[in-house]
Amino acid sequence: MSVLDIARPATDYVAPQKTVAAAAIDARISEIHYGKFLAVRDTNIAIEKNKITGFIGPSGCGKSTVLRSLNRMNDLIPSFRLEGQVQFLGQDIYARNIDPVVVRRHIGMVFQQPNPFSMSIFENVAFGLRLNRYKGDYKQRVEYALRRAGLWDEVKDKLKENGLALSGGQQQRLCIARAIATEPTVLLMDEPCSALDPIATRIIEELMLDLKKDYTVAIVTHNMQQAMRVADTTAFFSVDISRGGRTGFLCEAGDTEQIFHDPKQDLTKRYISGEFS
């Protein structure tokens, strides 16, 4: 289902200092603006294939902004401006000739609030397939996606019911099924559990661990324990208030183990120990 021409790497690509073997996304963001407001600066991060990358940090540190920049969701905000490159499998998705709509079909997104469409459970999952004019067996693909999202057994007898009639946790799994039905390369999750209870959260976390076999996942979380439980790589973002505004930046990124037990940066150490949040 490749719509993007991923065989041709951009020629003006500058190799990163530390080469990452298998990065699905390699973001080298120097600045993100909303109008005159500098929201994020100096954030170079690689989202490695078949791994879960967790974004943590205090409120307003730009972790959601960075995540949403990875599939050009921020383009929907008119004043948004990004300086830098975001390489997706070797292509800069911010290059002039790139269609953001196509980018979003390859880099799926799960949002903070479960947001199923007001249509049947089946149609919710089939939505992306129809969008991509999928020609195969819809029933099979929908069932597969719902099984992967761990929702099949709960909904198999009521596929015609409205997706909004499900509970919050089920709705979020429905959204995950909807996102993976089209087999995106990368799945971005923006605090997917913040509106859910602990049991639903646990289910989603197990789901993420299962999904990384086939997908690449990046997740923003406000919950450090969650990052420890699921993330292979953790990126810690912090806020710089020295220039007047609140500008987020990537403070430190590395193996989750290292970030939580042997942080290199003093800010990371203080955040991990719960000194500020």
Binding site: V101, G108, Q113, F127, L131, C175
Partner: peptide
């Protein structure tokens, strides 16, 4: 959020 979901799925 429903509109966001639509754009997130790659809708024009």
């Amino acid at each position: 959020r429903m509109k966001d979901a639509a754009f997130g799925m790659g809708c024009t």
